[in-house]
Simulated assay, not measured.
Amino acid sequence: MRFLRTWLEPRTLAVVLLALAVGGFVVVAHEVAAGDTLDVDRTIMLALHPQPDGGGPMWLQSMMRDATALGSTLGLSLVVCLAVLFLLLSRRGSMALFVLASALGGILLSTLLKEVFSRPRPDVIPHGDFVTSASFPSGHSMMSATVYLTLAILLIRLADTRVQKCYIVGAALLLSGIVGLSRVYLGVHWPTDVLAGWLAGGAWALGWWMVAELVWGKRG
């Protein structure tokens, strides 16, 4: 029984969460493609910006720009590179490859999804950040979920207690959550773009969680 709890529990949880994330993304994507989310998206964005010009307190705008940098290409690239270098110095080449493959695969998936849906950026308020790609799904939200949750997968293998593991996962979710909310506040993504990004990034990270469990099991 101890063996079954140790070996099956994380894998069962990963499969269930993965199915929920993928299913959630499919539902959101279908609704977005049908145009059924536009009213809700606009309502949420306008609720965040009651001023006609879409502005807000300067301190809050500055804070949101700082927060969105946590999911920027440069910010996440630095995090991934530093993590990969540390793992290589620690002679954990397979884990370094794990992090790199998850991040690069996430970028490719995000780019592909944006090309497939080609959703225009919001036009409700002036953009608070420079953007060039399509809107759906949010690349910042998806990649922050991918990178931070992938690193959390590795860190929880070093944690001794359930409380520590919950803290690590919670921190990763908090970081990706802050990034997604900042994208909506800055007016560069619809709320459903961010929701889809979280779901897609979470599903991608969960897939790599299953890989980690199969490859390393309880080994660090």
Rank of each mutant, 00 (worst) to 15 (best):
L4F: 01
R5Q: 15
T6E: 15
W7H: 13
T12D: 01
T12M: 14
L17C: 10
L20E: 07
A21Q: 07
V22C: 11
T37K: 10
T37Y: 00
L38C: 02
M45N: 04
P52V: 07
D53N: 13
G54K: 09
G55V: 07
G56E: 09
W59G: 03
L60E: 09
M63I: 04
M63V: 06
M63G: 04
M64P: 03
R65T: 12
R65F: 00
D66A: 08
A67M: 15
A67R: 10
L70G: 02
L70F: 01
S72L: 04
T73I: 09
L78V: 15
F86A: 15
L87I: 05
L89N: 10
R91S: 14
L100N: 02
I107M: 14
P122S: 08
I125G: 05
D129I: 13
S135H: 02
S135G: 09
M143Y: 01
A145I: 05
I156G: 05
A171K: 12
A171W: 05
A172V: 03
S176K: 05
I178P: 01
L181G: 13
L186I: 09
G187M: 10
P191Y: 05
P191G: 06
A200M: 13
A205H: 03
W208N: 04
A212Y: 03
E213F: 02
L214D: 02
